[in-house]
Structures are given as C-alpha cells and as structure tokens.
C-alpha cells in the first residue's frame, strides 16, 4: 500500500513537471518550428494571458472562460507584434530574437507601470484529494490532463485541418507553398498568433497557482528554452519526448533536493546533452539532408 502510494506520488510529480514543460514550451516551439525564430517575449505573452485571466475571472467570468479570454488576448497581442515588428525581420531570424527581447522589456515594464508591482490573484480551485496517504491538488491533475489534451489537439490540428497542413508545407518548402498559392505571410502571422495564444493559455492555466507579478513570465522561460533546445523544431517528435525525458530529470531532483535544484539539474542535463549529441537536435538532421 505504501509502495503503491509512493509510486502514485512520483507519477503525479512527474506528470506535474511534464505538464509544466509541455505547456511552457509548446507556444515557443511552434513559433520556432515554423519560423526559425525564438520569441524572447514568450514569457510576457504568458504573463499577458495570466493577467487577462485574473481580470476576467474577477469581473465574474467562470475560470475556464477567463482562461480562454487570456489565451485570446495573448494571441491578438502576438498578431499585433508580428505585424509591427517580426514581419519586417523574416530575412534576419537572429535579429528577430533581439527585437523580441526589446518587446519583452517594454511589455514587462509597461505592465509594471500600468498595473503596479503586484496584483491580487485568484485562488486555486478544486481543492485537494487524498489517495493512499498522499494529498494531491485537484487543479494540478486537471493541468496534466490539459497538457495531454493540448498535445492531441495540436497533432490533429497540424495533420487533419487544411490550415495545419498548409502551415507545415510552408515550413518545409516556403517557395513551393507560395507557388501553390499559399499566402505565406498570413500563415506566419497566424502561426505567431497561435504560438502567443498557447503562451497565453499557459499563463491562464497557471494563474490560479501563482503570484501575479509583471515578471512572472520569467518563471516559465528557462523551462521553455531548455525543452525547445532538446526537442528542436517539432512539437510532437521534439517537444513532447523532450518534456518527458526532462520531466524525469527535474521531477527526480525536485523530489530529492527541491524546486531550485530541479531547475539547475535540468539546465546541466541540457548542456551535457548538447555535448553528447552534437547535431542531435532534431532540426539538424532535416537540414543536413537538404
């Protein structure tokens, strides 16, 4: 009984970490996969989603609707950023990263000016349940389910919908997609919006568990970065397995030594991974063949 309880507890710990990694990274990974751009304002889109969620929830919207509102707001903000800045830099992907860092700074400091250094949050719903002597947060179980559902939804979206297929065609052979009459600019714009919306969704989902501060996005980005570094450009073949592997590393270390050492271990593991598998990052293999 004790053994079963301990197994369930580790499984929960792993699932919780896995969900956090998947949700943190998916928006970043989609933009990177499609456009070769690392969006350094990723954390601020997460923050945007979280703030809108909390404001909407306090205005009386039920939490799930508030979270969707947060995702939507972040997605719209993403499309505005794409139109104003990113679009002009497609030929210079490395410069895009620097520009999005500027946006990140404007967004976090702007929020600080407008909303103050902290905002009252919303409580974590669903209480906790007890299994085999261990207490589990019901809401975190929901987050695990949402992460899995999100992976499934993205898979269906990119493989079963017209836009998704066109989008993938655009990544693989942009000029071919153009020749087929695909408006690649629109695809890029929607992709950036989608990535930002996923970031907003993540922010909304975690808003009830966090302190609302303008720099809250920074909590997510290290995990998002390392997951994308290991996973590369593909959300399904890259991000999900990377999150699974890193989830084991981080959950194990967190259980033994606490949250911070989980994170340090994560980073060390990733740096070691880079050395051990040069070119082991999924995108490289595709590029070599071309």
């Amino acid at each position: 009984m004790d053994v079963l309880g301990a197994v369930a507890a580790s499984l929960f710990q792993f699932g919780d970490t896995f969900a956090f990694l998947v949700l943190s990274a998916s928006g970043l990974a989609i933009i990177f996969g499609m456009m070769g751009v690392i969006n350094l304002a990723h954390g601020e889109f997460i923050m945007c989603g979280a703030y809108v969620t909390v404001l909407a929830s306090r205005a009386g919207l039920p939490l799930p609707a508030a979270i969707l509102a947060g995702a939507l707001a972040a997605g719209l903000a993403g499309m505005v950023v794409e139109r104003l800045v990113v679009r002009h830099l497609y030929s210079r992907p490395l410069d895009t990263i620097v520009a999005t860092w500027g946006i990140s700074l404007i967004a976090s400091q702007g929020t600080l000016i407008l909303m103050g250094s902290t905002m009252q949050g919303v409580g974590t719903p669903l209480g906790s349940l007890e299994v085999g002597g261990y207490h589990y947060s019901g809401y975190r179980l929901v987050l695990i389910a949402v992460a899995l559902a999100l992976l499934l939804a993205l898979y269906l979206f990119f493989n079963r919908t017209r836009f998704g297929v066109l989008a993938r065609a655009t990544i693989q052979v942009p000029h071919m997609a153009e020749a087929l009459g695909v408006d690649t600019r629109r695809v890029y714009s929607l992709t950036f919006g989608l990535g930002a919306a996923l970031a907003g969704l993540t922010g909304g989902l975690y808003a009830p568990t966090m302190t609302m501060v303008p720099t809250m996005g920074a909590t997510f980005i290290v995990e998002a970065f390392v997951t994308v570094v290991v996973g590369g450009a593909d959300v399904f073949l890259g991000t999900a397995p990377a999150a699974a592997v890193l989830g084991v590393v981080k959950a194990g270390l967190t259980a033994g030594y606490g949250q911070l050492f989980g994170q340090i271990g994560l980073l060390v593991a990733v740096i070691g991974f880079i050395r051990m598998l040069p070119k082991g990052i999924s995108g490289f293999i595709l590029r070599e063949r071309a």
Binding site: F32, G36, I38, P93, L94, I97, F225, V226, V228, V229, V270, I271, I274, R275, M276, L277, P278, K279, I281, F284
Partner: peptide
C-alpha cells in the same frame, strides 16, 4: 557540442 546560434543564445 557545435550548438547553433539561436540555441546558444537561449542556453
């Protein structure tokens, strides 16, 4: 490890 530009930045 021959990591490329973007990744170097985020690591």
């Amino acid at each position: 490890g021959r990591i490329s530009g973007v990744f170097l930045g985020i690591v």
